[in-house]
Every structure is written in structure tokens, then in C-alpha cells.
């Protein structure tokens, strides 16, 4: 298992390099211009000068290699400087966003707290709701509870957030005036009242996201439990005279969790990636909103860095999921 993990980690490096090149080329190939958002009153000669100031005059491979050096060599130095107060990165060129002309990583650090608060909490809430419902739905298949659960999760899954978001705003912010519709990213939690404000401003986006994630997880949990309920070992366990509770909770659930844990682990990078539409609607302005803003602004260094961090997380959590799979299910052997 250990050698397998090490081998995967070593293999991840060339994979990631290849992914970064693929993302870079895709962004290069995509139509778009960082000057598209500038007003039409700015004439073309000025636009051309602005493009050159961004470094767009250079050929693509030079820009790619520059980015590689900045991301893999200079940015870690900046991080070390930040932690230990050293000065390795003094005066070196960091990865700069075209739109804000400032270091990309600084903005990313600024965005992480609100994304974790909202999307992270939504995932936790969804897992806590989805798993018990999924297990019970499977156990009492086609009961009223199961049917209601199926119905609600299908609605949750098939209604897009660009509808549920405004709907919740109209109900809770406009009509009832209970909750704010705009997330305040500079709000600081210092005591109990400010924590309550934080909870109130998180409530709507978390609701929208949790509905969607619950719908999805609940489906997988239910399907996986159903598969296991019909297995021979369950009959054996019952025949042994085990209590129904023990049969379900310690035999069925444990085995059904295997694919579900993988699904959850594979979804962790999505927490970091944020939720584009929900973040935009509630103005949470986390990583997801940053990505879509930069995509529309054709900010190649920004989008490249963000998607690449995302790729690193995907690769790492993929390895974690595979290792977990092997640990949870001893029948699987990788070596």
C-alpha cells in the first residue's frame, strides 16, 4: 500500500505538468481578449499598447515557462518569506493577474475563508442529512418516506441554483426580511452576536448548495445500500440471529459506505473550487466568483493559476480516494 501511494505521488508530478500545459493551451486557443471589458471608447492603438504592457507580445511558450517558474519557484519562496520572515522572493516577479495587476495568490488567500465558510459548511450539512436519509430510504424501499425522499432530492437536483437562489431571496430577504441577501466578506466573527450575524448571512447560500449536494449524495447512498441489502452476507447475518439494528448499521452500512466515501473524497476539491452561480447570486465573492470573473475578463494568468490549484487538489484527492478504497475494502489489491 505504501509503495503504491508513493508511486502514485511520484507519478502525479508529470501528470500535473501535463495538465498545466493543457490548461494553458486551452486558454490560449479560446477566443477572447483581456481588453474586451474596456469600453469601446478606448481606441485600438491604446488597447494594443495595454496588451503589450501585459506581456502579450511574447510567444506562448515563453509565457508558459515564465508562469511555470513563477508558480513553482517564486510563489513557494513568497510563502516561506511570509511564514518565517525571510527575504528569498525579494524583488522577484510573482504571478500577476492581468485584470487587477496584483499577485494572483494574494487574492486567492483573501478568497479562501468565505468559500470554506459557505461551501464547506454546505458540504458538511449535506453529508449529515443525506447519509441517514439514504440508508433509511433504502431499508424501507418504496415506503412513503422513501418516495418523499426521492421526490425531494430529484426536485433539489433538477432545479438549478439560478432559480432557487433568487427564490430564497424573495422569500427570506424581501418578504419575511429575516435574512440578508448579500454576503459581507469583511464581517469578522469576534463574539456571539457577530457569530449570529455570520450564521444569518451564510444561511441562504448554504441552503441552496446543501439542497443540491444532499440530493446527489442521498441518491448514491441509497443505491449503494440497496445493493448490499440483497447480498448473501446479510441473509447470513440475519440467519445468525443478529439484531436487525446490528445487521443494518454494522454490516450493511459499513459496506455501503465504500463507494460513498469515494464520492465524498472526490468532491472535496469542489469545496475549494467554490460554487460559481451561488457565490455570484449571494455575492459571497469566493473562489468560484473569482474564477468566473477572470474567465470573463480573459485573465489568463489568473484562470491558469486557479484551475491549476484545482487540478492539484483533484489529483491529490483522487489518490486519497484510491488509498481509502483499498483500506476500506481489503479485497482490492493494488500491488
Amino acid at each position: 500500500m505504501l509503495t503504491y501511494t508513493i508511486r502514485r505521488l511520484v507519478l502525479a508530478v508529470p501528470t500535473l505538468l501535463f495538465i498545466s500545459l493543457a490548461i494553458f493551451l486551452l486558454l490560449e486557443l479560446a477566443p477572447g481578449d483581456p481588453m474586451a471589458n474596456q469600453p469601446l471608447t478606448i481606441p485600438e492603438e491604446v488597447r494594443q499598447k495595454m496588451r503589450e504592457a501585459l506581456g502579450l507580445g511574447q510567444p506562448w511558450y515563453i509565457r508558459y515557462v515564465k508562469w511555470l517558474i513563477q508558480f513553482f519557484w517564486i510563489e513557494p519562496q513568497v510563502m516561506v518569506d511570509h511564514w518565517f520572515g525571510t527575504a528569498f522572493a525579494e524583488g522577484k516577479q510573482r504571478v500577476l493577474s492581468w485584470q487587477t495587476r496584483s499577485p494572483v495568490m494574494d487574492i486567492v488567500y483573501q478568497r479562501i475563508p468565505q468559500t470554506l465558510w459557505v461551501v464547506g459548511v454546505a458540504y458538511v450539512v449535506a453529508i449529515l442529512i443525506a447519509l441517514p436519509i439514504g440508508i433509511y430510504s433504502a431499508y424501507r424501499q418504496y415506503s412513503a418516506f422513501d418516495n418523499a425522499g426521492t421526490f425531494i432530492s430529484m426536485i433539489g437536483f433538477s432545479i438549478p441554483p439560478f432559480f432557487t437562489g433568487p427564490l430564497l431571496i424573495v422569500i427570506f430577504a424581501v418578504q419575511l426580511e429575516w435574512l440578508p441577501s448579500v454576503y459581507n466578506t469583511v464581517h469578522e466573527v469576534v463574539d456571539w452576536p457577530s457569530f449570529k450575524i455570520q450564521l444569518a448571512q451564510m444561511a441562504l447560500p448554504v441552503m441552496v448548495l446543501a439542497l443540491q449536494i444532499t440530493a446527489q449524495l442521498n441518491r448514491f447512498m441509497r443505491a449503494s445500500t440497496l445493493d448490499n441489502l440483497n447480498q448473501d452476507y446479510v441473509r447470513t447475518a440475519r440467519a445468525k440471529g443478529l439484531k436487525e439494528r446490528t445487521v443494518v448499521l454494522s454490516h450493511v452500512v459499513r459496506n455501503s459506505m465504500i463507494p460513498v466515501v469515494t464520492v465524498i473524497a472526490l468532491n472535496v476539491p469542489n469545496i475549494f473550487g467554490g460554487a460559481i452561480i451561488t457565490e455570484v447570486i449571494f455575492k459571497v465573492n469566493g473562489i468560484g466568483q473569482l474564477l468566473i470573473t477572470w474567465l470573463f475578463a480573459n485573465d489568463i494568468p489568473g484562470v491558469l493559476t486557479l484551475t491549476f490549484i484545482f487540478a492539484i487538489l483533484i489529483v491529490i484527492f483522487n489518490i486519497i480516494a484510491d488509498v481509502l478504497y483499498g483500506l476500506l475494502d481489503p479485497r482490492i489489491r493494488y500491488d
Partner: peptide, 15 residues
């Protein structure tokens, strides 16, 4: 699969 998963859909569509 990792590669495709990490590509943002909007630029893919535009391309």
C-alpha cells in the same frame, strides 16, 4: 480523467 476534470467548461465551450 483528472485532466478533463480540471479543465474549466467555459473555455472548452468557447474553443
Amino acid at each position: 480523467t483528472d485532466l478533463v476534470l480540471s479543465l474549466p467548461i467555459l473555455p472548452i465551450t468557447l474553443v
